[in-house]
Amino acid sequence: MGFGGIITTGLSIVILLVAGYMILAGMSYTINAATASAATVSDKKAGQLNTALTVANVTRVSEDTLEFNLTNSGSASISDVSGMDVLLKYVDPDTMQYVDAIWLGYVPAAESPVTGAGQWYSAGVASPMRNTTSTVLLLPGESMTVRAVLSASHPSATGVVQVAAPNGVSAMTQFDFRV
């Protein structure tokens, strides 16, 4: 009978040690996951802080086509130009209310000129370092001419062009084609 209590105590100690180890391993895993998540958020925020876009010189090429310059005015490269969103928001000049908004999908420059409506493509990149029109990379300081093909004639002569980078940074500018 004396050995039964000793064996039970020994098993209890082993079970407590295993349970403590499992608790510590679980806490370690949780801390590592939280640290990795914080690092990911920090990297994303740093990328956003280093990214800046400028939209300028919106011109009407035809009744269903607009062209504008997009400049990477930040210090980070935009490596996925195809992931950028281009939005057109038309405004009634009398009431200053939005009358229509259009999202345009990207088409590679190799498939230009675009024959489908509701799309945009790069009509060329102006860079002191390189000169290509089939690039999907926009380095700091580079300007890209964007051509937007719409589904119909403009519902209004005034509005806003907005471009958003894949990391969420956006820029916009107003246009007014009234004579």
Rank of each mutant, 00 (worst) to 15 (best):
A25T: 06
T54P: 03
T35S: 14
T59Y: 07
G26A: 08
S62N: 04
S79C: 06
S79T: 10
A25N: 08
S73K: 03
A25Q: 11
A76Y: 04
D64A: 05
N57Q: 06
N69S: 12
S75R: 09
R60Q: 13
N69Y: 08
K45W: 15
S37M: 02
V41F: 12
I23C: 05
M27A: 15
I31L: 13
D43T: 12
I31S: 13
L53C: 01
A33T: 15
S28K: 03
I31D: 13
N50M: 04
V58W: 08
V61N: 06
A76F: 03
T30L: 03
D64W: 07
I23R: 01
D43R: 06
K44G: 03
L53M: 09
S62D: 00
K45D: 02
S62W: 00
V61F: 06
N32F: 00
S77H: 02
S73G: 02
S75K: 00
R60L: 06
D43Q: 09
A36P: 08
S37V: 03
T35I: 10
S37N: 12
E63N: 15
G47M: 08
E63C: 09
I31M: 11
T30S: 14
K45E: 12
N69L: 14
S62E: 04
T40H: 09
I78S: 01
A25L: 12
V55R: 10
Y29L: 14
Q48K: 05
V81D: 04
A38E: 10
T54I: 00
I78W: 07
T59K: 13
N32H: 02
L70F: 04
L49W: 05
T54K: 14
V61K: 10
N32K: 06
A56K: 02
T51E: 00
T59Q: 15
L66C: 07
N32S: 14
M27C: 09
D64Y: 04
A39N: 10
